[in-house]
Write a protein that binds this DNA or RNA. Structure first.
Lengths: 338, 338
DNA sequence: CGAGGATGTGTGAACGTGCACATACTGACA
DNA sequence: TGTCAGTATGTGCACGTTCACACATCCTCG
């Protein structure tokens, strides 16, 4: 089918060796280190430029028994993938760290169940040396495969029951911090729109909220919604106002949720922040887009991606990554919405 | 360094052949097609499962002279990559199309100049069989390399001076359509915040705007801004109101720009849509986020990605992709902002 | 002056696959 | 019965690299 590239054949070490008047071995040593005389090195480097030599990855991978590629696996429905403000940053951070170490990043998006099997097979197929896994689920076929294979991985977020390296932010602590700050402004009836409680990030944020309020915590002021989405925030806020009209502040589990809440509050005739203070979580583009801009928690997405990638790279270079997890700092960003 | 995978050695065709009592060749034929008796086929398939055989990609790539991977190359600064509402969709669409054809997608983000060289080298290194290239620049080292190598590619968007397959939307036609619709609502003084005029998408949208207004076009009502970003829209709108206080409608070159414009208008005491009608472009998350939601043009991001990927796949399977480009339909979505 | 390390180079054997080729058996047909 | 097409299988080589090993030279030190 695929004809050899229209131009001429790719040049190989042999061509370089011939052009430089040395043997393959010496060329290889120039590329991979070893004793080479200055004279030979120079001749070879000239020859490389001359014949336009670029090493053949497949051949190198074959003999080295590795692929110099790391998978970036996102387990989210497509719609969420587009909505999530962090994934782009995580990807970028991971990609930057991997490129720097001369690894390639291979993106894999897992949507349907069928995909899950495909990816599990993919991972066991040795296409990648390791993987950064975002938003894994509990007892995911993917995590199962990873555990069984002992593939070097790092998770972004902390899937329960997994004892592999992971990076995340201190969702609980950050949620507690921003709730405390909100409380310190004098608010008394503080509600929360809690999203994605089936994930650690969601349940930890709720736990932090609860801790900050202590004895004042009122179960009735928590409105659970399925996703970290704008529409969920809006709908949740509507229900919450109805149930607790005296509410004077609300913590949205994400900026999108908080933005939805602002919209619903405004529609209900409440002023933000005068009548109701609102805080979010993520410091995504949403936060600067609402009026007034959201007080929120800065989620260092690029940092998370980079840290996860580095944890994988560490394992790849023979190190042992700490399975206890790395928590990145997620500082409160105070703006006008509360 | 990297020790062979902690478990046991990966099994190869030899192991399968031995387990099934046949030769390597027959195993290969089961995998790649050819004459095989039912009996042998069954024995081999059982053996494959038994020994947990997964073909070695590197070896296969080496002998087949291809990598079964397609690059996804984004030439944007990191900050824009995160802002752009379309890139996620394009990526997703491309990834879906490629996975279906059993190709892997390798993401490459080009930010700095240094990156450009790295990627040019990467592309010429035979790491990928083809590439989907997003937002290429004119006389980009990357496009140069691609042209020189004759690498099968497809562009998303139409970099000038390139005669390779590309997919895009009819920016000019869509901009004309939404401007006409805006005009039909009775607006008389229609301005435009024109972004990214150094790219085909930006200049085409301006051209469409101009065409729709015909003789009524007023150069003075066009405010050029560098990027498709919220902040640019806000700043541009501020300047535009000052210059033309009698303006009664504005076309933002993107939803983000339009959202910024809405913000600036509101800050200036204008009501949307009562005093000033606003329309955007992209139908991104921004559109539903403003109040009222934006009238805009639906940019089929996933469709673009998929179409580009398919154009690459077509070339890879020996077909000749149409270098004239494919234009996807971009329908006007009318909401409350005008 | 010879042993032995440091430096420099060439050669052969893998790595795991796909493919061309050789081989062998079957049945149909002249 | 010989020939030929179709079916079915095994074998050798090539893909382009790295790595271990053998070998050669030089310098140093006892």
């Amino acid at each position: 089918m695929t004809p050899p590239p229209p131009g001429r054949r790719r040049s190989t070490v042999h061509d370089v060796a011939k052009a430089a008047g040395v043997s393959r071995g010496t060329v290889s040593r120039v590329l991979n280190g070893g004793y080479v005389s200055d004279q030979a090195r120079e001749a070879i480097q000239t020859a490389i430029r001359e014949v336009g030599y670029v090493p053949n990855t497949a051949a190198r991978n074959l003999v080295r028994q590795r692929t110099q590629a790391v998978g970036f696996i996102v387990h989210e429905p497509h719609s969420l993938f587009l909505e999530d403000p962090n994934i782009g940053g995580i990807m970028l951070g991971a990609n930057t760290a991997l490129s720097k170490a001369d690894y390639q990043m291979v993106c894999v998006v897992v949507d349907t169940e069928r995909d899950t099997d495909r990816v599990a097979r993919y991972l066991s197929g040795g296409f990648v040396d390791g993987a950064v896994i975002v938003s894994a689920r509990h007892h995911d076929p993917i995590t199962d495969v990873v555990e069984r294979l002992g593939l070097p991985v790092a998770y972004v977020g902390h899937p329960p029951g997994i004892s592999r390296p992971w990076v995340g932010i201190d969702n609980l602590g950050a949620a507690r911090a921003i709730t405390e700050k909100l409380r310190a402004t004098g608010r008394r009836r503080i509600g929360m729109i809690a999203a994605a409680l089936d994930r650690d990030s969601g349940s930890d944020r709720l736990a932090g909220f609860r801790e900050a309020l202590g004895a004042d915590f009122d179960e009735d002021l928590v409105e659970p919604v399925p996703l970290y989405a704008f529409a969920d925030g809006e709908a949740g806020m509507r229900r919450l106002i109805e149930r607790a009209p005296d509410l004077d502040a609300v913590f949205g589990a994400s900026d999108a949720v908080a933005a939805g809440a602002v919209q619903a509050l405004r529609a209900a005739g409440r002023r933000v922040p005068d009548d109701v203070g609102v805080v979010g979580f993520d410091d995504s583009a949403w936060a600067l887009r609402t009026d007034p801009p959201l007080s929120t928690v800065d989620q260092p997405a690029e940092g998370l991606g980079a840290a996860a990638a580095e944890a994988v790279l560490l394992q790849l270079s023979g190190g042992v990554a700490d399975a206890d997890g790395i928590l990145l700092d997620a500082p409160v960003v105070w703006r006008g919405s509360a």
